[in-house]
Amino acid sequence: MVLDKMHARGSGPRVMMTRQPTEERSRNGGLRVGEMEHDCLIAYGASMLIYERLMISSDPFEVQVCQKCGLLGYYNYKLKTVICSMCKNGENISTMKFPYAWKLLIQELQSMNIVPRLKLAEA
């Protein structure tokens, strides 16, 4: 009976929108770390495990952030340079790694006219 319940995977299918592993055993899904599991791992001091589960194994994504205004930038393939969408130049741009789901959250907040800004201490 235990063998019927066991399920684990190294890599596999992902959801198209969030780029995170699929849910459920029937869809060859992964074991997901939710908010409660995240908080329990923090309480036990497992910060490297959380970093590995949420960033490396799940959905890492490179984001360009403007140091001046704190908004997300983009890469212009025609000019082959990074441009800030607010400042319209690429002088003060830093590249950072965040989960893709975080980038989606920022974009959804911006679509609701809520503009989160990042303050970068060191570039």
Rank of each mutant, 00 (worst) to 15 (best):
P116A: 00
S111D: 07
N92Q: 03
A8G: 13
P99G: 04
D59N: 13
P116L: 01
L49Q: 05
G10V: 05
M48T: 05
P13W: 00
E108F: 06
V2Y: 15
T22S: 10
K97L: 13
H7I: 03
R27Y: 07
R19N: 12
M36Q: 13
S111W: 09
K88V: 13
G45V: 01
A123H: 11
C40A: 13
S47H: 14
R117F: 04
G10A: 11
Q67K: 06
M6I: 06
K119A: 08
E122M: 04
I93D: 00
I42Y: 06
M55C: 10
S85D: 07
E122N: 14
V82T: 10
S11N: 14
G10S: 11
M36L: 12
I83A: 03
G73S: 01
D39C: 13
L109N: 08
V115G: 10
L31E: 12
R27M: 03
Y51V: 05
I114W: 01
M6S: 09
Q20N: 14
N113E: 05
Y75S: 01
E37G: 14
P21I: 02
Y74M: 00
E62R: 07
C66V: 01
R14D: 10
I56G: 10
T18H: 09
G45N: 00
Q20I: 14
A101F: 12
S58Q: 07
Y100G: 13
S57Q: 14
D39G: 11
M96H: 14
M96V: 10
H38R: 06
D39I: 11
K5M: 09
V2M: 05
C87K: 02
R53T: 11
S57N: 14
C87F: 05
A8W: 12
R53A: 10
P116Y: 00
Y100N: 09
Q110C: 09
